[in-house]
């Protein structure tokens, strides 16, 4: 297994772990932060796979903007899952 594959495997397992954590998380603010982690890992994978255009979108939209919009929504609704 080449170092490239090891990197991909690490990122992919981080993606799966954070996705599972998001689904299980009762604290929605933590879930939003984990969403950012997920997006950032995906962004690294895009860069590594040679798609910098997609990576930029992922970093800006996935890791940045959606978190802000989600936090505003949480401020209106509530932080805990019922």
């Amino acid at each position: 297994m080449s170092p490239n594959d090891v990197f991909d495997l690490l990122i992919l397992s981080l993606l799966i772990l954070s996705a599972l954590a998001i689904a299980r998380m009762k604290d929605l603010a933590a879930a939003v932060i984990l969403f950012s982690v997920y997006s950032f890992a995906l962004c690294l994978l895009w860069v590594h796979r040679g798609a910098p255009d997609v990576a930029m979108t992922e970093a800006a939209v996935g890791a940045g903007i959606t978190a802000v919009l989600f936090f505003y929504t949480l401020a209106r609704t509530g932080r805990k899952e019922k």
Partner: peptide
Amino acid sequence: FMILEGHVLPGGGFQGGVVLGALMI
């Protein structure tokens, strides 16, 4: 830079616009 150089380098209008929007937020 991303918006104006997006046709030469990675990046582009949408990415630059999102960064600009994030800055304004």
